[in-house]
Design a protein around this nucleic acid. Structure first.
Length: 492
RNA sequence: GGUCCUGUGGCCGAGUGGUUAGGCAGAGGUCUGCAAAACCUUGUACAGCGGUUCAAAUCCGCUCGGGACCUCCA
């Protein structure tokens, strides 16, 4: 059992040995989706990445509390609708209640997560269900003198805070630049005139009259600022300091930087020990973005209905595709890449079936214990799923070779191989066999048809046997003559 | 404009001072009635230029290309 995991900590930008705050327990918070739109390809990456981290930590014996929020309040929409709540905007377009929209897309998000086999979350708190906690945290920040009220809104005083704290450390930002409003490109944001300083950020926003989602607070009828929900909910469920906070790299600034400031402002201590960030998925080299309009929904990916898609890709193909790259690298979407992943996954799954019928010999021709260690080492080294998968394909080669009789494996090694291979493929990487669930009737029919084909073959009537095989292939049933004389089949 | 990341063979994608990444595709072979699958062999790589070093794809500098953040975003 490997106990030493290294993770790249965005705070230090280095790989660090992971040591949990409390031995044996891990608290992990991952920024969840804003549920005002359909889940897309970009959502797949962080939740698959941190699902694998969660599974691996669990596998190593840690008890992990994994918190992933649902953002269903606040947040500004694009510049055409400055100051308007995103959810409110969608609600008006679709003539739905805001919380109806939230329910709809929360369900869609859950469906997508299930399809991708991101199944385990300990707590999934909603921002709208934690308004009180957020107000309390804002009050603590104010009591400590790090925030001020302006026209019913509350802002975090970044300038004052930065004089005694390292604001900008996580994201590599320099406070002077932020204050100077560096970048002539900076867009005029709504509410800027209420701030004492352009670098300040909102903790509470007073709602405009047309704003649909709002709550009472000591300062105004309004809604929480853009970052406070994560601070309030992570503190509530994981404590003032916890082990791992994950999310996409695009959240580094200002979201996570602000979270740190808020938590320190409220509790006086750093909230997170290991900040872990996954890189973006790009399409034709460019980041997918809601405002860029180039994003692909997961549903579209699964059905193939999108102009960029040449075919449908199954959820496991997406998962495998994402895991073939390291989480800290950008991953460029392409049909060729997805198709290659699809075939590789089939090869891996086929081998897992062959593995179950392997026979042991006196001794092994491959070093199985060394292979096992390599698998653990790869994942423990900053969750390098790409290398882990490369090792799994080495196992595929061994499995197929033993099956073909060109290699042998001892009974003991076979046990280790089975256990480790299954642990990694299914348990840790979280892949599942996507069966086509043909049903018992199909099984019977196939058995009958294949017996006819066998009769034809034994009479050397290859015209008939080939016709059967070709016809079945046209329906998506692939026939395979095994070495031992049996015939197996798969459905596309 | 500021900060940071990145450029690997036909495609995707690891590695980061000396040792095979891996997958997909291509070529040849074994097996097969023919296939499929599997196995074996196999080619074109580290953007360009310069520097450090016994040794660089890997470190440093410059040039060129791509991208991210600075605004909601996974």
């Amino acid at each position: 059992m490997v106990n030493e995991i290294y993770l790249t900590n965005s705070l230090s930008r280095k790989k660090e040995l992971f040591v949990p705050l409390v031995p044996g327990f891990v608290g992990m918070y991952v920024c969840g989706p804003t549920v005002y739109g359909a889940p897309h390809l970009g959502h797949a990456r962080p939740y698959i990445t941190f699902d694998v981290l969660y599974r691996f930590l669990n596998h190593l014996g840690y008890r992990v509390r994994y918190v992933r929020n649902i953002t269903d309040v606040g947040h500004l929409v694009d510049d055409a609708d400055e100051g308007e709540d995103k959810i409110a905007k969608r609600a008006r377009i679709e003539k739905l209640e805001p919380m109806e929209v939230v329910e709809l897309y929360t369900d869609k998000f859950h469906e997508a997560m299930r399809a991708l086999n991101n199944t385990h979350v300990s707590i999934e708190p909603r921002a709208s269900g934690h308004i009180i906690e957020q107000i309390e945290m804002i009050q603590r920040i104010m009591d400590n003198g790090w925030a001020y009220v302006s026209n019913g809104s509350v802002y975090f005083d970044v300038l004052k805070y930065s004089k005694s704290h390292d604001y900008g450390k996580l994201s590599g930002r320099i406070i002077e630049d932020l204050i100077a409003g560096a970048g002539n490109e900076r867009r005029e944001l709504e509410g800027q005139e209420e701030k004492q300083n352009p670098a300040d950020f909102a903790l509470w926003k007073k709602a405009a009259p047309e704003h649909i989602m709002h709550w009472p607070s000591p300062w105004s009828e309004g809604f929480p600022g853009w970052h406070i929900e994560c601070s309030a909910m992570s503190t509530k469920y994981l404590g003032e300091t916890f082990d791992i906070h994950g999310g996409g790299m695009d959240l580094l600034f200002p979201h996570h930087e602000s979270e740190i400031a808020q938590s320190k402002g409220a509790c006086g201590k750093s909230p997170v020990r290991y900040w872990v960030h996954n890189n973006m998925i790009t399409i034709n080299g460019q980041k997918m973005g809601k405002s860029l309009g180039n994003f692909i929904n997961l549903e579209e990916l699964f059905t193939g209905e999108h102009k960029l898609l040449e075919q449908a890709y199954s959820p496991m193909t997406i998962r495998f595709f994402i895991l073939q790259a390291h989480y800290r690298s950008t991953l460029d979407f392409s049909n060729d890449g997805l198709k290659a992943a699809e075939k590789g996954l089939v090869k891996l799954m086929n081998a897992s079936e062959v593995l179950n019928k392997l026979h042991a010999s006196e001794k092994s021709t491959s070093d199985i214990p060394a292979w096992r260690k390599a698998c653990y080492d790869a994942l423990a080294d900053d969750l390098n799923t790409a290398i882990t998968i490369a090792h799994l394909f080495e196992a595929v080669r061994i499995i197929n070779s033993v099956n073909a009789g060109t290699e042998t494996i001892s009974a003991n090694d076979l046990d280790v191989l089975k256990k480790t291979f299954n642990d990694f493929v299914f348990g840790i990487l979280g892949l599942i066999r996507e069966t086509n669930d043909s049903g018992a009737d199909t099984d019977k029919l196939m058995k009958f048809i294949l017996s006819l084909r066998n009769d034809a073959k034994s009479k050397k009537d290859f015209a008939t046997s080939d016709k059967i095989r070709d016809e079945l292939a046209a329906y998506g049933f692939k026939i395979k003559d095994e070495k031992d004389g049996t015939v197996s089949w798969t459905k596309d």
